[in-house]
């Protein structure tokens, strides 16, 4: 049976690992490479690395940095931030990314998703969607790290991204991000129901129960989280144990003779 994935996310902003709240109030919390190594040693299901200042600074992804990460990462690595062309995607995959996350560029040029999918396969294109809740309960997509409204409903946009060739949707609630108050389950459910490709829930995880709800109530196939793993004693491994006890299938790493370097 396919297992539900728990995916730690690392946010990079100008060479540092950062944490923010509601896509704002960023503070630097260290360098990223040691985190990649730790997560790899702990055999997490997957890792996401987002360079949140790349698009805003008008630059592409930092390929050297990604190359350093991937050489220490023996689980799947998704990289996003500043991907604006087929060449950007190709460079990232060459640098060792397994999947490329697109976000801002899709609104201006959705065909980019198709181009990348046709050349490298749909499975390596993750469409990132950042959304805010409106006062009337509807949602609106935002690009450029939450700074630019796109006048688009996230469920409709997710469906479009699937049609253009995305292999997964990474849906993030901007308000919940970094708050540890729980995922926006309505948002996740809306998006999850709209598409037939896997959905990764993002933004707001503060407890194992939150992660469980993203899967059970939100209908997501994977849950990504940052603050909970970086700033609390909670770990991806315990999150999986929590899910397993409630009947959600998760990976159980077996013992092997081989070991992973510290």
């Amino acid at each position: 049976m396919l297992k539900t994935r728990i995916i730690p996310t690392l946010l990079l902003k100008d060479i540092g690992l950062v944490k923010g709240i509601g896509f704002d109030s960023w503070r630097r919390v260290g360098t990223a490479l040691p985190s990649v190594k730790v997560y790899n040693r702990r055999q997490v299901d997957e890792l996401i690395v987002m360079d949140i200042s790349a698009t805003l600074s008008g630059r592409g992804p930092d390929l050297n940095e990604i190359s350093n990460f991937s050489s220490e990462c023996f689980v799947p690595l998704t990289v996003g931030g500043g991907v604006r062309s087929l060449q950007d995607a190709q460079n990232l995959l060459r640098a060792g990314a397994d999947k490329v996350a697109l976000n801002s560029a899709c609104y201006e040029n959705p065909e980019l998703v198709t181009e990348i999918a046709q050349k490298f396969g749909t499975q390596c294109v993750v469409a990132g969607i950042d959304a805010r809740k409106n006062s009337d309960g509807t949602y609106t997509c935002y690009s450029h790290s939450g700074t630019k409204s796109q006048n688009m409903d996230p469920a409709a946009w997710a469906k479009k991204m699937e049609e253009y060739g995305a292999g997964e949707i990474l849906i993030t609630s901007i308000e919940r991000d970094g708050t540890m108050e729980g995922y926006d389950l309505d948002l996740i459910r809306l998006v999850s129901k709209a598409v037939s490709i896997p959905v990764i829930a993002s933004g707001g995880a503060g407890s194992y129960e939150d992660i469980y709800q993203a899967i059970k109530t939100g209908g997501a196939q994977a849950a990504s989280a940052a603050s909970i793993f970086h700033f609390t004693q909670q770990t991806p491994l315990e999150a999986k144990e929590y899910l397993a006890k409630r009947g959600i299938p998760v990976t159980q790493m077996k013992k092997f003779q081989s070991s992973l370097a510290a």
Binding site: L2, D45, Q221
Partner: peptide, 22 residues
């Protein structure tokens, strides 16, 4: 069954083989 099939899934051997040792 969402496609693509993305994530961790188990294998069940149908034959013994040196590739499956341990």
């Amino acid at each position: 069954i969402r496609v693509p099939h993305v994530g961790w899934n188990e294998i069940t051997a149908k034959k013994s083989d040196p590739l499956l040792t341990s």
